[in-house]
Design a protein around this nucleic acid. Structure first.
Length: 416
RNA sequence: GUGGGUGUAGCUCAGCGGCAGAGCACCGGGCUGUGGACCCGGGUGUCGAGGGUUCGAACCCCUUCACUCACCCCA
C-alpha cells in the first residue's frame, strides 16, 4: 500500500531547520520587544474579499496564487497569502487607532500561495510580519529596516544588500503612470505577451519582468523616482538620512517596485546572492492609503515581512548546546530500578539525562551515549547498586570516579 | 501554468539488457563491565508506480506520480 505524503509545496519542518527557525525567531523577538512591538495572532483563513481589496484585484497573487474555496455555508474564503491584510482588518476591528496614537504589531506564522515550488519557495511558508500604524514620518520606515539589520547582525548573516526606492503617493504615481504608458505604447512591439497585457492593467509591474526583451524596452523608460512630488521626495531623502544615522548600508534601486498594489512611498528589499532565484528574504514598504481603503480612518502604515525559510538558508552556524548532557547506562535488574528515581531527580534539577531503551550491553549503551554527544555517562550495574555507588565517566577523556548512589544529591554532585 | 534535471538500502550514490551493489549509518562480535580509533561478520531493498518490448528489464519504450532547479511570481 502506498503511504500518504504531504501535499506538493507543503512540508514538514524538523531537525536542524526548525532549530534555525527557533534561532531566528528568538533573535527577532528580542528586538521586537526592545522597540515596543506587540505580538498579535490573526486567523489563517479570511474572507476572500479582504485580500482582493487590500492586495489588489489585478495582482498575480490574487489572480492565480491564492488558496481560495467555498466553505460549507457557501462563502468564499482564502488561506492568507500574506499577513498585512489580516492585521489591518484586526486593527480596524479592534479600533486600535482610537486607543493608541501609534501601533507596533508583529505576527509569526504560515502563509499560503499556490505557486510551483522551487528553492526557497513553498506553498505553505512562514513569515515574521511587522507593521507600524499611525506614523507618517519616514522614521518608522527607517526603524523597520534598521531592526532587520540588527536581527541579521545578531544571526551572523552578512552577505546581503538592502535595496530601497520610493513608489510615490497617489498624486505622483498617477503622473508617472501616464508618462510610462505613453512611453511603452511606442515600444509595444518589443514587449512579451505578459507585459503587453500589463500595460493596461498594471504597467508598473513591467519593471519586474526578467524577460530580456522587456528589460531592453524599459532601459530608457521613465522611472517613478523622477516623478516624485516634493513631499514624496522629501520623505525619501529623510528616510535615507535616518538609515545613514543608523549606519545601515543601502543601495537606491530606482526600478524597484513591489507586487502588491497598496504600497506608497518607501519600498525596500533585503536580497542575498546565496539564495538562488528567489533572492529576496525580507521586504516591505509603506502603505499610507490602505487603512482608509479598507474602510478605516486615514491612518498611515508601514511594514515588512521576513521569509523564514529563506532567512534560515542564510543562517550558517548553529550555536552548540551549552548545558552538558548526561547519560545513564544501567546493567541488570537492580540497576534498572534506579532509572526512574534518577531521571526524576535530574529533570527536576533542570539537567538533561538521556538513556537507552531498552538497555542492551554496556558497550552498546556507551556507544549510544557517544552518538548522542553525551558529556558524562553515569554507569550503574548491580554491583554498584550493592555498593551504593554510581560511576561517572567523563566521555571526553575516559576518566571515571565513584559517586554515592543518592538521587536527591546526585544532580548537584555531578555538576562538580 | 511552462520547461530542464533526478527518483536504486535509513542517508549519499554507482550500476544503464544477463545473480541487486559501494561508502556512511545501523546491529552483533573481537573486549561475556566501558564509547570515539581499529579488525571481523551481518544487506536491512515492492530499483517511485502502472503498462509495453524482450528468452531475460533497475537499465529500452509509453503513461503516471513525486522531488528538484529555472521561467512566472514573490518572503
Amino acid at each position: 500500500m502506498e503511504h500518504l505524503t504531504a501535499l506538493r509545496g507543503f512540508r514538514d519542518i524538523y531537525g536542524e531547520e526548525i532549530e534555525r527557525f527557533t534561532l531566528i525567531e528568538r533573535a527577532a523577538r528580542a528586538y521586537f520587544q526592545l522597540l515596543g512591538y506587540k505580538e498579535i495572532e490573526i486567523p489563517v483563513l479570511e474572507k476572500t474579499e479582504l485580500f482582493k481589496r487590500s492586495i489588489g484585484d489585478t495582482t498575480d497573487i490574487v489572480e492565480k496564487e491564492m488558496f481560495t474555496f467555498t466553505d460549507r455555508s457557501g462563502d468564499s474564503v482564502t488561506l492568507r497569502p500574506e499577513a498585512t491584510a489580516g492585521i489591518v482588518r484586526a486593527y480596524l476591528q479592534a479600533s486600535l487607532y482610537a486607543k493608541e496614537r501609534a501601533s507596533r504589531l508583529f505576527t509569526v506564522g504560515p502563509m499560503f500561495r499556490h505557486e510551483r515550488p522551487q528553492k526557497g519557495r513553498f506553498r505553505q511558508f512562514y513569515q515574521m510580519d511587522v507593521e507600524v500604524f499611525g506614523i507618517a514620518d519616514p522614521m518608522a520606515d527607517a526603524e523597520l529596516i534598521w531592526m532587520v539589520f540588527l536581527i541579521l547582525g545578531r544571526l551572523g548573516v552578512t552577505n546581503y544588500t538592502v535595496e530601497i526606492n520610493s513608489v510615490g503617493c497617489r498624486g505622483c504615481r498617477d503622473e508617472f503612470r501616464k508618462a510610462l504608458v505613453r512611453f511603452l505604447e511606442s515600444k509595444k512591439e518589443g514587449l512579451c505577451t505578459d507585459c503587453a497585457g500589463r500595460l493596461d492593467r498594471n504597467p508598473l509591474r513591467i519593471f519586474d519582468c526578467k524577460n530580456a526583451a522587456c528589460f531592453d524596452a524599459i532601459t530608457d523608460a521613465p522611472v517613478i523616482f523622477d516623478y516624485l512630488c516634493d513631499e514624496c521626495r522629501k520623505h525619501f531623502d529623510d528616510c535615507l538620512g535616518r538609515l545613514g544615522a543608523f549606519h545601515v548600508p543601502y543601495v537606491v534601486n530606482k526600478r524597484l517596485v513591489r507586487g502588491l498594489d497598496y504600497y506608497t512611498r518607501t519600498v525596500f528589499e533585503f536580497t542575498s546572492p546565496d539564495l538562488g532565484a528567489q533572492k529576496a528574504f525580507a521586504a516591505g514598504g509603506r502603505y499610507d492609503n490602505l487603512v482608509e481603503e479598507m474602510g478605516g480612518p486615514s491612518i498611515p502604515g508601514t511594514g515588512l515581512a521576513i521569509g523564514m525559510e529563506r532567512l534560515a538558508l542564510l543562517v550558517r552556524e548553529l550555536p552548540p548546546g551549552q548545558t552538558p548532557l548526561y547519560f545513564l547506562a544501567r546493567v541488570g535488574e537492580e540497576a534498572e530500578a534506579w532509572l526512574i528515581p534518577l531521571l526524576d531527580a535530574f529533570v527536576s534539577s533542570g539537567m538533561p539525562l538521556a538513556y537507552a531503551q531498552p538497555a542492551r550491553s554496556l558497550k552498546s549503551q556507551l556507544k549510544y551515549a557517544n552518538s548522542l554527544g553525551a558529556d558524562y555517562a553515569l554507569i550503574l550495574a548491580d554491583e554498584e547498586v550493592s555498593k551504593g555507588i554510581v560511576l561517572m565517566r567523563d566521555m571526553k577523556d575516559g576518566t571515571q570516579k565513584e559517586l554515592p548512589l543518592d538521587p536527591a544529591g546526585l544532580p548537584r554532585l555531578v555538576k562538580g
